[in-house]
């Protein structure tokens, strides 16, 4: 291939690749060590926060990744796992506590809770990951273009994204799903639309930051074509940060789907989802609190893991929210 700058492999950049430009810039700077300012943080703020950066991702991150892997595997393999039919009633006595035959117990209709929770996770995960993937693809491309070319495109894009943000998210999702009719597809669509606004602004922000970096300016001056600069120099650097914030966005999407499920406008019963299980269990909470607690706990841990992993990665790639 006739490629003028073949050093940097295209496509998804690994962490070392993303950090490379800033590392060279620091290394090439003045060798003199200015110790005083950094040492003299106020006594009131004893530690300049070294925290995450440069220290690896930490135990919590891997714990989160572990949990997410387990949940995703269970959801994917649900059909071939030895589970009861999640919608079959009276596979056990109603309202059983955890036990050998039904690990998590049964609900008020005698359905197996373990099976329902696992099949329910499919709804959350499908909606969460699909909607953010769609939002990232659309919002990301728009944001990339707006941040790179600036000018009129940028003004229009930012304006539209801000108007999309002017609607309270849940209310907009509720409105869309209501008017289109509740279904898994429409819920995913509604949350994708919601995701486009913030993701556009996010990618636009970090694109602007990277477009002004020396290596991008240099590539432009060397006569690289616009799309090549965007693809090789900017995308490779924007992507890690966008992906880590994407994880947090997935958490938000899962929470949003849960809300719609809870209000009964997402997948219809008897199909289980975490949100509608919480809503159903609420009615019999006094007698059978576990029916609500299991899906709540799973959702809590999954959202926590996504938030935590995303937050760690964000700190690791040093995405500043100020770029927004």
């Amino acid at each position: 291939m006739h490629d003028p700058a073949p050093e940097r492999p295209a496509g998804i950049a690994g962490p070392s690749d993303a950090l490379a430009p800033s590392a060279t810039m620091v290394g090439g700077g003045s060798p003199s060590v200015e110790l005083e300012p950094e040492l003299l943080g106020s006594e009131l703020a004893p530690d300049a926060e070294f925290e995450t950066a440069r220290r690896g991702l930490g135990f919590g991150f891997w714990l989160s990744v572990g949990w997410l892997t387990v949940i995703v595997l269970l959801a994917v393999l649900a059909d071939i796992l030895p589970l009861e039919d999640p919608n079959a009633t009276f596979v056990g006595a109603p309202g059983l506590g955890p036990g050998l035959h039904h690990l998590l117990g049964t609900d008020e209709l005698g359905r197996d809770l373990l099976s329902r929770v696992i099949f329910g996770s499919r709804v959350s995960l499908i909606v969460g990951f699909t909607s953010i993937a769609v939002g990232m693809l659309i919002g990301g491309s728009i944001g990339l273009a707006a941040g790179y070319f600036r000018g009129k495109i940028d003004a229009i894009v930012t304006g539209l994204a801000n108007i999309l943000l002017a609607f309270p998210a849940l209310v907009l999702a509720l409105a869309i799903v209501t008017f289109m009719g509740p279904s898994l597809f429409h819920v995913t669509l509604a949350i994708s639309i919601l995701a486009i606004g913030p993701l556009t602004l996010l990618v636009r922000g970090s694109t602007i930051v990277f477009s002004q970096r020396e290596f991008v300016v240099a590539a432009r001056l060397l006569g690289a074509k616009s799309w090549r600069v965007v693809y090789r120099e900017i995308l490779a650097n924007v992507l890690p940060g966008a992906m880590s914030l994407g994880l947090i966005a997935v958490a938000v999407a899962i929470v949003a789907e849960g809300a719609l499920s809870f209000l009964g406008v997402s997948v219809r019963t008897p199909t289980a989802s975490w949100g509608n299980m919480i809503a159903e269990g609420r009615i019999v909470m006094v007698q059978h609190p576990l029916i609500t607690l299991w899906p709540a706990a799973l959702m809590f841990l999954t959202v926590l893991a996504l938030n935590f992993a995303g937050d760690r990665l964000r700190a690791y790639f040093d995405v500043r929210e100020g770029a927004l």
Binding site: E36, L40, P46
Partner: peptide
């Protein structure tokens, strides 16, 4: 500068 702050006791609390 650290000398003048040491005189005043205006140093970070840790490390």
């Amino acid at each position: 500068t650290i000398l003048s702050r040491s005189i005043m006791g205006l140093l970070p609390r840790r490390n």
